[in-house]
Simulated scan of single mutants.
Amino acid sequence: MRITVLTVPDCPNAPVVRERITAALDGRQARVELIEVREEAEAARWKMTGSPTVLVDGVDPFAVAGVPASVSCRLYRDEEGRPGGAPSVEALRTAFAGTEVSASAPVEECCRDDRDVLDPIGRAGRGRRAPGERGLRAVHQAVLGHFAATGRAPEPADLTDAAAAVGRTTVDVLAELDREDFLTLDADGRICAAYPFSAVATPHRLRLAGGVEAWAMCAIDALGVAAMLHQDVTVASCDPVDGRPITVTFTGGTARWEPAAAVVFVGQRDQAGPAATVCCDALNFFADSITAEAWGRQHPAVQGQIISQAEALRIAEQTFGPLLAQD
C-alpha cells in the first residue's frame, strides 16, 4: 500500500495527519510519501482538494463530489460530526481496510526531498510546467514547440517575440529557465536540452507525427512526449546491458511495448544539480527485470528502483502532459 500526503508548505495539520496515519496502520508496513504542493495547477494535477489531502494508492478515500482542487485548508469531520484539520484515526483505519499490507513491520516514511529518486524528474513536487509569470511559460512552450516541429533546439533569436511580449530579453528568460531546471544551456547560452527533448543524440530516439525525429533525455521523458503533444509517437531505445532493442509505440493514446516484459529503471546519483546530470542517464528502458537488476548491481552509486510499464507511463503523463496546456 502506498499512502501519499499532499500538503501546502508549513501546513499545521501535516504532522497531525502523519501521526494519525502511523496510529491507524497499527504497525503494518506502508510507504508514506510527503509531498508539498504550492500552486493551484499542481493541486489540480494531484486532485488535491485542500491541505492535507491523503491518497491511498493514488485515490482520495475522503473525496467529496464537486469539490474543486485547491491549496487552501481542508476540513474533515470525525465520527461525531466534529470538524478537524485531518482525518480521524478511525476514518483512516477504514480507508486502509482491504488494502494489501504486511503485519508487524514499521511504516516506511519518505519525503519527496533531494533523496527521492523521482525528485529531479518532477522538480521536488513543483512540476515541470514553467510559471506563467515573467514570460517563462511562453518562452518555455515556444522552445518545446520548436523541438516538436523540427526535432532541433531553437536558436535564441527564434524566441525573441515570446520574450519581448513581456518586456524581457531571450537571454534573461532562458537563463532563468536554466536556473530553475526547465531546460539546460551550454556555455554559449544555447539550449542543450528542454525536458523531455535533447538537442544531442541520446539512446532514446523519437519519431513524431509527420516523420519528425528527435531525441529524449531519458526513458521517462520519452514516454511523456505522446501525452504532451497529444499525438502518436514511436520510442526506440535499447537495453543498456545486452543491447536488445526496445520500442514503445503510442497509437490513439495506447502504448504497445516490445518486448512485452520491458521495464523502466528510475534512479539518481547522490549529488546536487539539474536532472540532466543527476539522473537522466540513470532512467533507462530494460528488456526485462533481470537486466535491470544487473544494471543496478553494476552501478552502486545510483539509488533507484525498477518500475512497471504502467507506473512509468503514469509518471511520464503526470510530469509532461500539462506542459503545453494554454490555461
Rank of each mutant, 00 (worst) to 15 (best):
A69R: 14
L144C: 05
L25Q: 02
Q318M: 14
S104C: 11
F197P: 06
F265A: 13
S308I: 08
L177S: 07
D60L: 09
R20Y: 00
R256W: 05
Q298S: 15
R31D: 13
R18A: 13
T53I: 05
P322N: 11
T319E: 12
A222H: 00
G81T: 11
Q303C: 07
S51V: 08
G84E: 05
V278L: 03
D327E: 09
A294D: 15
V171L: 11
P120R: 04
P300R: 06
P87Q: 11
V302D: 00
T234Q: 13
E19M: 04
I246G: 01
M48D: 02
P259H: 12
D172W: 03
E39A: 14
R269L: 15
V139S: 00
T249G: 04
E176M: 01
A138F: 02
W215L: 01
T251E: 08
M1R: 09
E39M: 09
G224M: 07
G211F: 13
A301M: 15
P154T: 14
I307W: 08
Q271D: 06
D172K: 12
D26W: 00
M48Q: 04
M48L: 12
A227S: 15
I246M: 00
E33D: 15
A157K: 02
A69W: 10
V225Q: 04
C279H: 07
P9D: 13
H204V: 12
T99P: 08
R179T: 14
